[in-house]
């Protein structure tokens, strides 16, 4: 019977003090009755192994004790879906965004000169990744504690009780093109096009605020490319304004325009577009330094431009897939 006492003690460990003795006494009585019945059936005392088998069938002390306890949770079923969403958002903000920002800002970092090998670059990235994890753990902890407090104070109960069906958001139509977005696209493209053609044009030698700026020979090609992209954008935005729904063709055109625009912009950053800057009364060495700094600044923005372009293109591809999969 010593084994039964040990089992009862193990169950009691998990029970609240107030109910412990009562529950243990009843449970022990149940086990002893079972053992007695078996002993009467076999006509002998049960061995320790046989008593252990009875206890094993009852379940582990923690499981048995848990059945007597009320259902408890840190974050209840009503709050949990919101908690899950907030957690996903926090994890993305803490883990993905810092890495993207790090990659984007890498060219401007003071330590970039030290990253002369792939190993040192990876070590720097690892350090950024490590600190991101730390902030992610901290943020997840803060969010969990905040939700646990909301759960304990039953703050959500009022919100769920007082809900009004009339305040539900309108049904979201993923194929609808917002009017504001079309108008913004149209105005932005038109202003940019007029400004570009009016002020810059195709010429490679410009006079800006008393300075003579000579551009690379690739400049006219870039201008022609940007003009075509802007014209296509104006046409698409115009069409979207009057028929504000995404179709397969329109989503494909959007993708093509964004691919072309991204490629042109990345080329523009990498092209070393400034050939020469000449300003009166400024030494040639200083002019050259200004030109090199501007070209280098543009080149350093290249990785960030690639990331932004990739995100835009991925969103376009997703839209095309979504429109295609619904057969419109």
């Amino acid at each position: 019977m010593e084994l039964i006492n040990r089992y009862s003690q193990a169950v009691g460990f998990w029970l609240p003090k107030k109910q412990r003795d009562d529950i243990i006494a009843e449970l022990s009585e149940e086990i002893r009755s079972q053992v007695e019945d078996k002993e009467a059936e076999f006509g002998r005392k049960l061995s320790e192994a046989e008593i252990a088998a009875v206890l094993r069938r009852l379940g582990s002390p923690l499981v048995v004790a848990n059945r007597y306890l009320p259902q408890r949770y840190l974050i209840g079923p009503v709050l949990f879906p919101i908690y899950q969403r907030v957690l996903k958002f926090v994890v993305v903000c803490c883990l993905v965004l810092p890495i993207l920002a790090w990659v984007g800002l890498m060219p401007y970092s003071a330590g970039r000169d030290a990253w002369h090998s792939a190993g040192s670059l990876l070590a720097a990235l690892g350090s950024c990744w490590g600190s991101s994890w730390l902030s992610a753990f901290f943020s997840v902890g803060v969010v969990t504690v905040a939700f646990a407090i909301i759960e304990r104070t039953k703050a959500m109960a009022k919100a769920t009780d007082d809900w009004d069906p009339l305040k539900l958001p309108a049904v979201r139509d993923p194929h609808l093109i917002p009017l504001a977005s079309s108008i913004f696209d149209l105005i932005f493209s038109a202003v940019f096009l007029i400004g570009w053609i009016g002020c810059l044009g195709l010429q490679v030698v410009l006079y800006v605020a008393g300075a003579k700026v000579t551009l690379a020979s690739s400049w006219p090609y870039l201008v022609c490319g940007f003009v075509l992209v802007l014209l296509a954008n104006i046409a698409l935005s115009g069409a979207n304004l009057f028929r504000p729904r995404w179709t397969r063709v329109r989503a494909a055109v959007r993708l093509a325009i964004d691919c072309a625009g991204s490629a042109l912009f990345c080329w523009f950053l990498k092209a070393g577009i400034l050939l020469d800057i000449a300003v009166a009364n400024v030494p040639q060495a200083k002019e050259s330094a200004i030109k090199d700094a501007l070209n280098a600044g543009a080149a350093r923005a290249f990785p960030l431009a690639v990331i932004v372009s990739a995100v835009i293109i991925l969103l376009d591809v997703r839209r095309l897939y979504r429109v295609g999969s619904t057969g419109r």
């Binding site: 529950i23 009843e26 449970l27 009585e29 149940e30 009755s33 079972q34 009852l58 379940g59 499981v63 048995v64 059945r67 007597y68």
Partner: peptide
Amino acid sequence: GYTLRLALTDLGLAIDEGTLYPLLR
């Protein structure tokens, strides 16, 4: 508890200890 469990089992409604005792409480 024990005889209640036996009686229910005899009547075709077997119930284990882990369910019966918390239910009684």
